[in-house]
Write a protein that binds this DNA or RNA. Structure first.
Length: 260
DNA sequence: ATGGTTGATCCTCAA
């Protein structure tokens, strides 16, 4: 079962790009971020015609996450627990059955946090603390599960073409990296990095300053696997070519192949 | 230090 994550930066602007990628790659499950649309504006028919069921947690103009799956989607939960006052649509999770078992899929859009320091950065760190609590509970279930999405964190220097440019940015600050490691080191496996030690493997290139042409990228989209999922990991990759397409997102898809 | 680009919306904000 191939499970992908793709920050599409607006479903309305990216519908054709997304449809072409789905038709070409035929991933079994897709976690989408930055829908930037309410639930009733999601193009359910478009993805349905391509063979996908869909569950969304949308929001007008900003944020918004969804899970697409060729197989039925069960036990859907919307929103990251821990703060009733938080109305930003950044988390959705569901269970999908494969031929040899099921996988719990958590789709996340972690806050960007800029400018840092400031209230947006405080929100990012608080959100990551809440995510750690959910991650601990997920591990305790000892099941095949993963947390996939746009983490807005550059884990290490080798995950950036110009690491020095991000040292004072919310995506690269030491406190951001520490919070990421606190989650990772609970017992998760970075599904891409564990199979790909090579540097210059990026998932995001800014629209500005010719970042794509200069390969001035960063790796901020991740799939973190529970031990039970990591045991079934057979391959992973980044669909880098998508950044060179017509009307690209600033992110590209990243995926893992699990034997389930 | 600054500016540069894209999307959603309605002009400025978020990224």
């Amino acid at each position: 079962m191939r499970i992908a994550s793709f920050n599409i930066n607006g479903i309305k602007a990216r519908a054709a790009t997304l449809a072409a990628w789905l038709a070409e790659e035929k991933p079994d499950v897709v976690c989408l971020q930055e829908l930037k649309c309410p639930d009733d504006a999601f193009p359910t028919d478009l993805v349905g015609d391509l063979g996908y069921n869909v569950v969304t947690h949308g929001q007008k103009s900003f944020n918004g996450v969804a899970i697409l799956s060729r197989r039925p989607i069960e036990d859907v939960v919307r929103g990251l627990p821990g703060d009733e006052a938080d109305d930003q649509a950044r988390w959705i999770e569901a269970t999908i059955a494969g031929e040899h078992g099921a996988v719990r899929v958590c789709c996340l859009y972690l806050p960007n946090g800029n400018p840092a320091p400031g209230p947006k950065y405080d929100y990012k760190l608080a959100w990551m603390a809440r995510m750690k609590t959910r991650a601990e509970a997920l591990l305790a279930e000892e099941r095949v599960a993963l947390m996939a999405g746009d983490y807005n964190v550059i884990p290490q220097d080798e995950d950036a073409e110009r690491p020095e440019a991000w040292r004072n940015d919310a995506l690269g600050l030491p406190a951001s990296r520490e919070a990421f490691r606190r989650i990772l080191h609970l017992g998760f496996t970075d599904g891409f990095r564990v199979l790909h030690p090579e540097p210059m493997a990026y998932t995001f290139w800014d629209y500005q300053r010719g970042a794509w042409a200069r390969n001035d990228g960063i790796r901020i989209d991740h799939l973190l696997l529970t031990p039970q999922a990591a045991d079934r990991l057979s391959a992973s990759g980044i669909d880098r070519h998508m950044r060179g397409r017509e009307k690209p997102s600033d992110h590209v898809p990243i995926w893992v192949e699990l034997d389930i």
